[in-house]
Nucleic acid binder design. Structure first.
Lengths: 299, 299
DNA sequence: AAATAATTGTACTGCCTGTATAAAAATCAT
DNA sequence: ATGATTTTTATACAGGCAGTACAATTATTT
């Protein structure tokens, strides 16, 4: 990667650590890195893209560090696992990755959200597979649940421990404590047979990005809600809202959206709309047209 | 409370559920509730204040609901506890409270953050005290850890279960499963004597809001970082940054800030500052003056 | 040296939160 | 009921933000 671009990422990372993502303006990044706005948008199409680039490099680094710890070692050895987790959390802490991750997850950007979800699932899957190494194939049906709970236990212990900053407990202690709890849990649920989520779910989570679909949903939702808003004080409000809700429903929740119905609904709205809504309706029409075009291409 | 004001809160709540807090603009709230901007800012001093008002009413409602379930019942009975937790999570889900809470925690507003932290600690304390009811005084030293871990287990189980929306596991099952794990954990740590956080910490967390202090910190930090930024291309950058960092350090991390040193530092900066920085320096001076005044009043 | 690509500076759009204020409407006190 | 006070409205405004547009300049390739 371009060293200049990497330099911008590093500066941004530093600023995100100090002030948080949302509190850091693009102008801040420009001032500190000494590049111009044009160059920034030549490198990244948006602030969120920069964040994705940052996360990508950090996650790669962490994954590599974790994998290196396993090389030439016995995967069954739980001490290695502890070292791996400890490494991850120490790196996270140094980079304030967890806060950043939390802060950013609920931003109103489908692409970013999908990316973060994928990272998330990836790390759960990693845990799950390491648990198979450690606890054996026979415990498999319970290990997704245990991976999820281990994550919760560790994360919360870590969070409250750093809140109690006077505490002299080290990350190593926290990891060991959390692992100890998990070992007992695995034994217990394997004994009683209790299960919440079957591990097969992981497969259905992984490839299922549907990125374009989600982005479409967001745009669609935005368009419909703008239209609804512009109708608030209209006398035939109820009728129009019904039509808009129908379009939404038909596009998102029916197995196969009926194109002619939706087109008819939009036409009907257009014929009675004021000039203000007309522009928005045209956008909606375009959006729907693109959606169907894309569907046909996929066949 | 004013019914009109409550109505605005309800409308806002609905919008936050549908679109999220950040994606809902004040204009949206005005349009849907039919009030004017002036009235809005008469009711709430900011969007964040509105959110605090919303959280306050919701939390009160949940706490009351939980307490009502305990009336006339045996506090030792774990079934009642399960019902209480189930009630809380069902209400949370209906109100999307957890997402809202997560979304909003990292906004750049100290007052809001302090408020949310207090809510957080409050709920952990509630768990801890219920655990004392259930598991007995003898287990007390381990019950803060267990409350924290229970929260993590439950929250994660719940999160992944709703992600796997095809799952037919009910909230009740998730709560019961999580409680079962916790019961074993309590026994285990009481046996082995492992402890991360002593419960006495709760007391030191609770009253210690230091709201004004935190708000001051935020303003101070902002002021210093603006000044730093304006010095980026200054030749004596390093010297000034050193001075600024000293002021920050002395004000925030020394037991008793030495007023005369800080005033001297600011004077020295002022004497050599450009006109641009002068305005910002004056604000910093004012901020520091107010801080010391407040300290003296507190004595 | 010419052609191509990267970078800069600046002005712009459009959205946002929050402020200011004068006019209108509603409520209260006498 | 009327005069005083508070609440509400409408509207314009300030300042900050992300992102776009584009012509002028500087680097890099060929």
């Amino acid at each position: 990667m371009n060293t200049r671009k990497q330099h911008v990422i590093d500066i941004a990372h530093q600023l995100f650590i100090e002030k948080g993502f949302q509190a850091t303006s693009i102008q801040d990044i420009l001032d500190y890195s000494g590049i111009s706005k044009g160059t920034f948008y030549n490198y990244f199409s948006s602030k969120n893209e920069l964040l994705i680039a940052l996360f990508t490099t950090l996650f790669k680094k962490i994954e590599k560090g974790q994998d290196d710890l396993l090389i030439g070692q016995d995967p069954k050895n739980i001490e290695i696992f502890i070292k791996q987790i400890q490494y991850k959390y120490e790196t996270n802490r140094a980079n304030k990755l967890l806060s950043l991750f939390d802060e950013v997850f609920y931003l109103n950007d489908e692409e970013l959200k999908q990316f973060l979800k994928r990272c998330h699932i990836r790390s759960i899957r990693w845990l799950y597979e390491r648990f198979i190494d450690i606890f054996g194939e026979s415990k498999k049906p319970y290990l997704l649940d245990c991976a999820i709970m281990f994550r919760g236990i560790l994360q919360n212990n870590q969070k409250y421990n750093s809140a109690a900053n006077n505490s002299n407990v080290s990350i190593h202690d926290i990891v060991r404590y959390s692992v100890n709890r998990t070992v007992t849990m695995v034994e217990e649920v394997a004994e009683t047979g209790e299960q919440l989520l079957p591990p097969e779910l992981l497969d259905s989570w992984m490839p299922n990005c549907k990125k374009t679909n989600k982005a479409f949903q967001q745009k669609l939702y935005h368009s419909i809600s703008t239209l609804k808003k512009s109708l608030i004080h209209n006398e035939d409000q109820a009728k129009y809202i019904e039509l808009l809700d129908f379009i939404l429903e038909e596009l998102l929740h029916s197995k196969e959206s009926r194109k002619f119905l939706i087109e008819m609904a939009i036409r009907s709205l257009k014929s009675e709309a004021g000039s203000l809504e007309k522009k928005e309706l045209q956008q909606l029409e375009q959006l729907v047209a693109n959606y169907f075009k894309q569907l046909e291409e996929a066949d």
